[in-house]
């Protein structure tokens, strides 16, 4: 039985697409047949971050409209086996996403994949609502600042009231918190909210803390999911996040500021 996971946040620019790319790549690396869908019709950039924008022929909207079949539109990732990408259309708008159409595509994908990751657009309009409607689980990406946390809270409310599971009265969508762009030193100084502050406000389990890292920008410019940059702190944090999602009990890293001594800097660690 396939699991549909939405990566959502409410606010834009917090790291949804980065998280979708690395999360999907991480699941595939661990042997699960995984597809990641870009729901940001009109502003697609999952394919850029995944480094496959030049290979897009057909897209999500083509399939919904019956202009192509899934095999024509799905892009196989060249680096990670088991990973497929379903890109968004650059030339349509989000009204092209009909509930029946999305459901049909998801049902077809369920036949062939174990994990279906839906990369939601920002906002709470049609694109975001369609991305979360069929979800079984949700990664709610938030940054340690007040407006981002507020918008995530709003999205959690929508997940609890307007998803298919909520409407049908089934078990609620399982919620996971991903705290991205976290800088422990700045949280200690009070410049940003701390992990505890965010958890207290949102009250959902923490799946992972992704540190603020130059590696994220570098890898996204290079078209590589940062989880594949295994030596980077952000890559390691995403790797832990995927393991935790799959049931491993790992302590959270990158949540405390560390003064790096000379030896530590020399030998790495932390």
């Amino acid at each position: 039985m396939a699991t549909v996971i939405v990566v959502t946040s409410g606010k834009g620019g917090v790291g949804k697409t980065t998280t979708s790319a690395s999360f999907a790549a991480g699941l595939a690396q661990r042997g699960y047949r995984t597809v990641v869908i870009d729901f940001d019709v009109g502003l697609r950039n999952l394919d850029l971050i995944m480094g496959c924008e030049r290979r897009v022929v057909y897209d999500f909207v083509n399939i919904i409209n019956g202009e192509a079949n899934l095999n024509q539109a799905l892009i196989r990732d060249k680096r990670v086996e088991n990973l497929h990408i379903l890109p968004a259309s650059q030339t349509r708008d989000k009204e092209a996403l009909t509930r029946e159409g999305v459901e049909r595509v998801l049902n077809e994908l369920r036949q062939n994949f174990e994990y279906i990751v839906c990369d939601s657009p920002a906002g709470i309009e049609r694109g975001a609502l369609m991305a979360l409607y069929f979800a079984d689980e949700a990664l709610v990406v938030t940054n340690p600042e007040v407006s981002s946390v507020r918008d995530s809270d709003r999205i959690l409310g929508i997940l609890a009231s307007r998803s298919r599971r909520a409407e049908q009265g089934e078990n609620p969508v399982k919620e996971h918190l991903v705290l991205a762009r976290y800088a422990p030193e700045r949280a200690d100084r009070g410049d940003m909210l701390s992990v505890e502050d965010v958890l207290e406000i949102l009250g959902i389990p923490l799946l992972g803390v992704i540190p603020e890292s130059p590696a994220v920008l570098q890898s996204s410019n290079a078209g590589v999911p940062v989880i594949l940059e295994e030596d980077s702190d952000a890559g390691a944090a995403y790797s832990d996040l995927v393991d935790r999602f799959l049931g491993k009990n790992l302590p959270h890293r990158f949540i405390t500021a560390q003064k790096k001594g000379f030896l530590k800097r020399l030998f790495g660690g932390g």
Binding site: R150, D151, D153, R154, L156, G157, I158, I201, G203
Partner: peptide
């Protein structure tokens, strides 16, 4: 369940009991 930002809950004629937090914006 917690009442999240943007949600509004009204109990006509009676009491309202919330088993959880009421978020900012709710």
């Amino acid at each position: 369940h917690p009442v999240r930002s943007g949600q509004q809950i009204y109990a006509p004629d009676g009491d309202l009991i919330i088993l959880g937090a009421v978020s900012a914006g709710a």
